[in-house]
Simulated scan of single mutants.
Amino acid sequence: MSDLLSADGASMAQPLKPLAVVLTGAENPYRVLQWLRRSPAAHLLRRLVLEPEALNHDSLDTLPQRAATAYVRGLLVTAGILPPRDENLALLTNWAARTVAELPARHAHLIRPFAEWHIIRDARRRSSRGRYTYAAHKGDCGNVLAAIGFLNWLDSQHLSLGQLRQRHLDLWAIDRPTLRSRSIPFLRWSTARRLFPPGLSIDRPASQLPGHFQAEDEARNELLRCLNDSALPLDVRVAAALVRLYALPLTRIVELTEDHISRDDEHTYLTVSQHPFVLPPKLARLIDDQLRHSMPRHSTATEHRYLLPGQSPGRSRNPLGLADTLRHHGLPARAARNTAMMDALVDLPPMVIADLLGIHPKTAERWATLAGENWSEYLSSLT
């Protein structure tokens, strides 16, 4: 360990001693030695130790953002050498800076203030409330890319923002339906700054109601697989069961920690949005097993443990990767969650569902309308 964490191979700098505790505290010595010899993260850490001035977030942000970089950052945060930060927000800010730097000047002078003062500013506000998820970061990146795409399209039409007319916006919306919603934030921002003539707009497309559901037997059989099939990976069983029982999105499931689990003399509870749910005994045991067997390779005793930890210390599992894993095991999330949402609306009013699951009340109302008008017809068509 001294070879790794000391510049001279003998004496370890005092600030790095907590890191030595993290590296050796969670595993047997043999596995630690294997990690030190073979892991790209260990080699990167060694390089950084030789340059103490590089042990900060800014220096790490300049490196290629590979798995090894994320892992080393997680180690340094876990050890208390670097302060914790919202990594989803950092992903957005660093991505935006790199993206704007590659734009031609005529586009950068518009995209930079839009990204920094509109997109990132709003992301910081959500982050301060603990609500900035990985999915939100991906959506914000998509809004910036749509703005860039719109400016590129204007160039192809030999137009400037000042020459824009409603017929041009209508043509953009028709030709690029997938970017229609994503371009609205930039257009509204531009309108507020009078960058093009007043009165122009793109209507947000009508919200699409969900179209993927499961028949009752299919939903029940998949839930039974989650609870009883020991051949499935434990994390797959837990995540898929939470989707099917409580209609939780994967973005919320990956944020669950052991602090969301509580117990009394009779039951085990899962708390979501400050509301405790009683867990079925089988699922409670699966969650206990998952927490017991999901100890990260490097961690501290005081660290809040994620129910589904990611590859990097202190980070949760990526929801996109989790969705792929569930599909691989024949337990896709979308149709199962839609079905669970419909089942919940049979017993609970939309406002309660909105509060419990953290969705917008209007979204819950649309789901309730779908449940009332189409759900029984849909189920009968599957039988």
Rank of each mutant, 00 (worst) to 15 (best):
S2C: 04
L5E: 08
S6N: 09
M12S: 05
M12F: 02
P18K: 09
A20I: 00
A20M: 05
V22H: 08
A26K: 13
R31G: 06
Q34M: 09
R38N: 15
R38Q: 15
P40Y: 15
H43C: 05
L45W: 10
L45T: 05
V49H: 08
A54I: 04
H57Q: 11
D61L: 08
P64L: 10
A67T: 13
A70M: 10
L76N: 02
L82C: 07
P84Q: 13
R85L: 14
A90K: 06
L92H: 01
A96P: 00
A97F: 02
T99E: 13
L103A: 06
R106K: 09
A108G: 10
L110E: 06
L110V: 02
I111N: 05
I119S: 02
I120S: 05
S128P: 00
R129S: 09
Y132T: 02
T133L: 14
D140K: 11
A146Y: 00
L154R: 07
S156D: 15
R165A: 15
Q166C: 01
D170R: 14
L171K: 14
L171P: 00
W172M: 06
T178P: 00
L179T: 03
S181D: 11
I184D: 00
F186N: 04
R193G: 04
R194T: 04
L195S: 01
P197Q: 15
Q208M: 06
L209P: 01
P210K: 02
P210V: 10
H212A: 10
E216C: 07
E218F: 09
N221E: 13
L224D: 14
L227S: 09
N228I: 03
L242S: 00
R244N: 11
A247H: 08
R252P: 00
L256P: 00
D264C: 04
T271W: 09
S273Q: 14
Q274V: 03
K282Q: 12
L286D: 07
D289S: 12
Q290D: 03
L291Y: 01
M295F: 08
H298S: 08
Y306K: 01
P309C: 10
S312A: 15
N318E: 13
N318R: 02
L320C: 07
G321H: 12
L322F: 14
H328F: 14
L331W: 07
A336H: 01
A340T: 01
M341G: 03
L345N: 03
V346D: 11
P349E: 13
V352D: 13
D355T: 14
G358T: 07
T363Q: 12
A364L: 04
A364D: 08
A364P: 01
R366E: 12
W367K: 00
L370P: 00
N374Y: 05
W375N: 08
S376E: 11
Y378P: 00
L382R: 15
